[in-house]
Design a protein around this nucleic acid. Structure first.
Lengths: 370, 370
DNA sequence: CTGTTAGCGCATTCAG
DNA sequence: CTGAATGCGCTAACAG
């Protein structure tokens, strides 16, 4: 259907020049003031004429170091290019400085926003996220939990409230703060920060009814481990019944996440099978875009001929023509809240015993497509 | 312009139930076969009636452990839920198992694909990426390099070939393999895996000329640290001159990355200022989508009234109406190649002295929009 | 095949 | 304010 002309450029690997790889330790004092990971704290101490311990204190801004000593040490550090070994520090203190973070897919910008929020807040406390990508699969999640636990994270943030039995136990017995995000778990493991996907689906059904649509349909993924998408669908279908609308059509693909292209295919299928449908709720904005593009292609007007709504308030929802009605939530703030929850636990130690459940606000953004 | 109706749901944080937080060590042997990060190798050794060292060997599949002993140890590990401490192991071996990986923005799915490739290949070798997000800023990159160096990564993958002077030195003196990816650096620090963004821009100009367009324009980001986008623009502009076309118009926004919405705004501006333009090259597919949507909105036909091309071959480029002519490269394979390069260096030690430059193939995909 | 000794780089005591 | 001794959990090297 589409011509694919390729102007090939270059291939292959070429070895260019010879270079001297300065591996390993190099204690020459004539080196520029740049990282030398072969250096140890003792080297700095020797050069500054103090003990290792004093260097350690100076580095951590311990108050019990005189200003003069501190300045001298700092000068040596700068000159020699010493970079402290945080792994060793963590090893000694028993605090790794890591927080394991599992998201379904890094390729979905919506989770990337959440991750950004997490990274920023953790960074403020000197914590570093250890990222894991579950690929929307619970078995992969279980594997990742085990893998990341070996790095002795101080906390763990996971997406969703559904896990394998073993994953659940791993989390419960890890002895570290755990936060489930992006959903309201039925059986929370510990703290959670999320919103009700079910309610989001219901909200969209109400909106479509308010706009005068009566024959609704849903496009999304079918089976699989994406319980959040499934909850949105269920909420939508429940509301359709509650509101006394005609039974909703459902078009699904078997594996989450559904793509833009699949959104378009689903639209074609839907139009063929159920021409009476006047409004469609797509499980995510990308699939809604696909559905809209398909309508353009078929010469259908949105929303005049058929209304289309999405979920997530991706940037494209605003920029699309027509712009897309969608459910919006501050995904970044969600990540920030999850990270803050971990930090709060860490600071409290095991003193606080009550489980915290944070419900994020979401809103329906009415745009041109409905 | 757009009504924003909000069906507010819930807010705030509620404390629900009381739970018993089982922090810290718990040596009860009645625990389920689940992670207990309080356990040490010695505990397993004691329970299995062997020495720590034998447990260590069994865990690493060392051949010098009898099958019986190994089975006994494994049984104890499973029963007690021991999870080895990889930080401690790394500390002892001097191999952290980390590879620092810097990308401009995790929120751009194109880099997420590359990251996925990196993660997969590193994972095969038991290596874990330590992620850093530079936000398209070289000063942030420098900061991140320093931060991540503290975790003693075994290698470092960075995006692009332009760095601050200090960052460059940090990388040169880190004593670990470094790979620059996504570009062909003018002054490579060490190995690189990328493609010529400049040539990509030229390729697009040639294509547009071949299609009969004569008045070309470019939409993209202006200043900032995104040298890859800048190289595409320069290549495009150079080719316009080489090919004897009319001088190209350029519409830019000052900070990369340019959004879909900005692509639309740029389109409006371009149509007002330069109505003679018949084809536009957008620095990335998202901005091309924005431009196309704006054309829909204004009642212009693409490509009949104006042709629009993008870069990156994002999923939307295929699903869009019209589908978008773009430059395609296997972003995931790019990441895989970068990771393999790190691994190759790691395996070679400092024996191999020649610098490797890998040029990835890219292709122009001709679709409906031109 | 298995055990013993030593130490990775740092921070936590406790003495000065 | 500064220094010396000790140990975090594991593995390398060597000894049986």
């Amino acid at each position: 259907m589409v011509a694919q002309i390729c102007y090939r450029y270059h291939i292959d690997k070429v070895y260019l020049t010879q270079t001297e790889q300065t591996m390993g330790k190099s204690k020459s004092k004539t080196l520029p003031a740049i990282a030398n990971t072969g250096l140890r704290m003792q080297d700095i101490a020797d050069a500054a004429g103090v003990s290792k311990m004093t260097v350690s204190r100076a580095l951590r801004n311990d108050e019990y170091v005189s200003a003069r000593t501190r300045a001298r040490i700092q000068a040596v550090i700068d000159r020699m290019g010493y970079v402290p070994d945080q792994n060793a520090a963590g090893f000694a203190t028993g605090r790794s400085g890591f927080v394991a973070t599992l998201i379904p897919s890094i390729e979905h910008s919506i989770f990337a926003s959440t991750l950004r929020g997490i990274t920023d807040i953790l960074g403020e406390q000197g914590l570093l996220p250890l990222l894991g990508d579950t690929d929307y699969r619970l078995d992969r999640e279980e594997l990742l939990i085990e893998t990341l636990l070996k790095r002795r994270p101080e906390g763990m943030i996971v997406t969703g409230g559904k896990h394998t039995e073993r994953a659940r136990k791993l989390l419960q017995h890890a002895g570290i703060p755990v936060v489930e995000m992006w959903d309201v778990p039925e059986q929370p493991i510990a703290d959670s920060v999320g919103f009700s996907n079910h309610e989001a689906g219901r909200t969209m059904a109400r909106h479509l009814k308010d706009r005068g649509y009566r024959n609704l349909a849903f496009i999304g993924a079918a089976a699989g481990d994406d319980t959040r998408g499934a909850a949105r669908r269920q909420g939508f279908l429940d509301a359709v019944i509650e509101l006394g609308l005609n039974p909703a059509r459902v078009v699904t693909f078997d594996k989450p996440p559904i793509t833009t292209e699949q959104g378009g295919q689903a639209m074609t299928q839907l139009l063929n099978q159920s021409p009476e449908v006047d409004a469609v709720f797509c499980v995510s904005d990308p699939s809604a875009v696909g559905a809209i593009m398909q309508c353009h292609r078929l010469g259908l007007r949105v929303p005049d001929d058929i209304a289309i709504a999405g979920f997530g308030d991706f940037e494209i929802a605003r920029a699309s023509f027509p712009s897309i009605t969608t459910i919006s939530c501050d995904w970044r703030a969600l990540g920030e809240a999850a990270a803050r929850q971990i930090i709060e636990r860490l600071k409290a130690g095991d003193k606080t015993l009550s489980v915290s459940t944070t419900l994020m606000t979401f809103s329906l953004v009415h745009r041109e497509s409905t």
